[in-house]
Design a protein around this nucleic acid. Structure first.
Lengths: 146, 146
DNA sequence: ACAATTTACTAAACATGTTAAGTAGTAAAG
DNA sequence: CTTTACTACTTAACATGTTTAGTAAATTGT
């Protein structure tokens, strides 16, 4: 009987397995981002805004997996840097509506090639079928109610 | 043509998909940890130490996906709390060898049931086959060279 | 209409993440 | 043997993560 008889191997524990896999994928992306003075979080926010158009902050928080207090600070910085714009909601004045600016969109476009190249490197090693399969399973896991 | 013509949908982008899936799994685990005054990081460290025995800090950093500066601080706190013990390496004095204490192991044992229950809830909804398949794919992705 | 509750966000405090720089011990090269 | 490089970690500074508390606007209950 080995020493970890009472727990699952960490490589078969979902939280750690997801984290390790993500670190592998993020390593080269972090390299890319460092070159353009953008954090991982800001990159996610730009991606979400580009995809969803003008949305309220809570939506960004949900989609980009950030808590509102973090988002408050990060969006303040991004607004100062001209990557996003904010305005008060018209019908509901509690809401802050956020959208990506042309400058923000340009950052995405300028780094699309690098981003794709990283994805292709991974796909070349694992195969497109497995990647698709993995993404399907991840979407399904995300929808589980806990 | 929709507005995100130049990027992949975020739900099909590996980094965000991995993050969202992880948030789903972690939510109930964070609830559990809050009840026992343990952070997600400390829990990972205990799991890794329980699995690997006495190891140097760099190994913990790799396995638990933490950077060394974070680990330095966290292990200092965990040593104060009696959950781990540290000693200088005998042959190589640069190394710090770390192992879990009985107190640390007890924390794992006391929360094993909750941890298993969470896993079972997820398994009940997705099915064991899919979970196994997902874990296989995650291990494979983690091994990709980028 | 009014009080109570809820929602969307902000503020503050402390832990952790992240990068750069520093220290001490070890290994490699000449 | 000595200089040089490298390795394992620590420290410091600042960004972000996380929790708790607070504010203002909207909603609900009566």
């Amino acid at each position: 009987m080995n020493r970890q008889s009472h727990t699952t191997r960490t490589s078969r524990a979902l939280p750690i397995a997801l984290l390790r896999a993500r670190e592998t994928v993020m390593a080269p992306i972090r390299d890319m981002l460092q070159g353009i003075q953008l954090t991982e979080q800001k990159w996610r926010i730009l991606r979400v805004l580009d995809e969803m158009g003008e949305v309220e902050q809570s939506t960004i928080a949900n989609e980009a997996c950030l808590l509102l207090p973090s988002l408050t600070r990060i969006l303040r910085a991004m607004e100062n840097d001209g990557q996003i714009s904010r305005r008060q909601g018209s019908t509901d004045k509690r809401r802050t509506m956020v959208k990506i600016t042309d400058e923000g969109r340009q950052i995405l476009e300028e780094n699309l090639a690098t981003s794709l190249a990283i994805h292709n490197t991974i796909e070349a090693q694992m195969g497109q079928e497995k990647i698709d399969n993995l993404l399907d399973l991840l979407e399904e896991l995300q929808a589980v109610k806990v």
